[in-house]
């Protein structure tokens, strides 16, 4: 029943190289658990969770977990269009996965057009570096610099300890919500990136009236 009460629904997509930890990140966010063994994702998997922003609105996140494998690329591309945000995921112990981030980002930009998606850059497997099991190949500074260049939020997470997982998702949600408030994003017929939730319906009608009242004012 709790799921019923949300103000907005955002569709987000998780993209990045194969085996960087997209599914594990999502599993922790969804179930609060870490899967020791994880099968490679087939095509696109789907999850949903409702979160509460500090300012009040409840937001249902529809999360698309895409397969990183090249053979699924034609399928995963279909899901870009209806997303409002993309989490760019890389493995901080694997240099190549960070080097491919610009490719993933441009892919998403191109397919989400004409909408301008919100990105966050998420480094995974922080626990492996912290406990010394693996060597870090991507420094925090590099990631920060990339984030500053493209004006996107960056964070390093661990799906095993759960550190920063919540932060990664709430950051992207917060940014999308800000863009709705500033009027950059609007709900559109035929685009599923943002939908108004059930409890928001009455507010939505007011919004339409407001739009219509505007030109009348300027006439007088």
């Amino acid at each position: 029943m709790a799921d019923l009460m949300f103000d907005y629904q955002f569709r987000l997509i998780l993209i990045g190289d194969s085996t960087v930890g997209k599914s594990s990140l999502l599993k922790y966010f969804n179930d609060g658990k870490f899967a020791e063994v994880s099968d490679p994702t087939v095509g696109v998997d789907f999850f949903a969770r409702t979160i509460q922003l500090p300012e009040g609105p409840r937001i249902k996140l529809q999360l698309w977990d895409t397969a990183g494998q090249e053979r699924f690329r034609s399928i995963t591309k279909s899901y870009y269009r209806n997303s409002v945000g993309a989490l760019l995921i890389y493995d901080i112990t694997k240099r190549a996965s960070f080097d491919h981030i610009p490719v993933w980002m441009n892919d998403a930009k191109r397919h989400i057009e004409p909408h301008r998606p919100v990105f966050v850059l998420v480094g995974c497997k922080l626990d492996l570096v912290n406990n010394g099991a693996s060597k870090r190949e991507v420094s925090q500074e590099e990631a920060k610099q990339f984030g500053a260049e493209h004006n996107i939020f960056t964070v390093e997470t661990s799906a095993k300890t759960g550190s920063n997982v919540e932060l990664a998702f709430s950051a992207i949600t917060q940014e999308i919500y800000q863009r709705i408030k500033s009027g950059e994003y609007q709900m559109e017929e035929g685009w599923d990136g943002i939908k108004s939730g059930y409890s928001h319906h009455s507010a939505n009608i007011d919004f339409n009236n407001y739009i219509e009242a505007e030109p009348a004012k300027s006439c007088c």
Partner: peptide, 10 residues
């Protein structure tokens, strides 16, 4: 069915 569809596609 959805998963089957995905697999049939590739």
């Amino acid at each position: 069915f959805y998963k089957l569809g995905e697999m049939l596609m590739i």
